[in-house]
Nucleic acid binder design. Structure first.
Lengths: 151, 151
DNA sequence: GATGAAAAATCTGTGAC
DNA sequence: GTCACAGATTTTTCATC
């Protein structure tokens, strides 16, 4: 379903996502036409989901990022679904992850500064439905190494 | 430094990252020429970091994702730096986040299946330097709502 | 100083081999 | 899979507000 050439393409694409097709083709050792066809195949196969614009939040004035670990009160019907639905509506929540086990979810929240974070926390997080427990961690850095993914 | 037009562009770009420039220009209510110039300005200003290809790991055969919460033994010199440096070298670690506080870092690890995860965990995670404590959470879903970001 | 229209340059996708 | 080309897209130029 996916051969070494495809993997090489994906690897190069992670290492240099903004490259034009011709340059990416060079690096992956194929011609642009081949690359174009393989990308199309991977998009159709659902392996390649699309592109995402990366925004530098601190540069935009959002200096603070906090990771919240959430446990829900699951005694009521669909606590999970209504919690997620409500959390998605909070603009400052930029990421939601859900888990199997004792902890139910993790939210990443961004804010301009600490007072702004406090305000979001009180007004928009603590008011989310079915909360049982929250633990907060102040974020320092996010590191991803695009060149060493297991493609 | 960043006006409403820029914000509108960023917002539309998050909502539909794969759109061609001309279509994006339409939605943001500017001409392609203006859009091109403003994007360039935001790239230079460091607000826009670039585009990133999104890979569907399960479709690629990586069905398991685990979130590891790491506490380090900081009694030795630069535990932090050497831990991060070593973690980056593990291909299956697709994300590293560091924190201020009692918990030091969070790693996202992907694996083909549970036995494969166990193998990575034993051979590549537990061998990382300066580990004091690890807590693992099995990942269920990752949700991001690009249409409700605080741009 | 930034914008819009149109030309110029570049890039992508398709068909033939 | 490759080559060459047509079509589409992006960037730059130039005049304008």
């Amino acid at each position: 379903m996916l051969d070494d050439t495809d993997r090489r393409i994906l690897r190069q694409m992670q290492a240099a996502p903004d490259l034009a097709l011709a340059d990416l083709a060079d690096r992956a050792g194929v011609t642009p036409a081949t690359l174009s066809r393989r990308l199309e195949r991977m998009r159709e196969g659902g392996v390649l989901l699309g592109k995402r614009a990366e925004i530098n939040w601190p540069a935009l004035g959002y200096a603070v990022e906090v990771s919240l670990r959430i446990t829900l009160d699951k005694t009521q019907g669909n606590a999970f679904d209504s919690f997620i639905a409500a959390a998605r509506e909070v603009p400052e929540v930029i990421e939601i992850q859900t888990f199997l086990g004792q902890v139910d979810a993790r939210l990443s929240v961004i804010a301009r500064d600490i007072p702004h974070y406090q305000q979001i926390y009180r007004d928009r997080i603590l008011t989310l439905p079915h909360l049982a427990d929250i633990e907060a961690l102040m974020h320092v850095a996010r590191i991803k190494d695009e060149e060493a993914l297991p493609v």
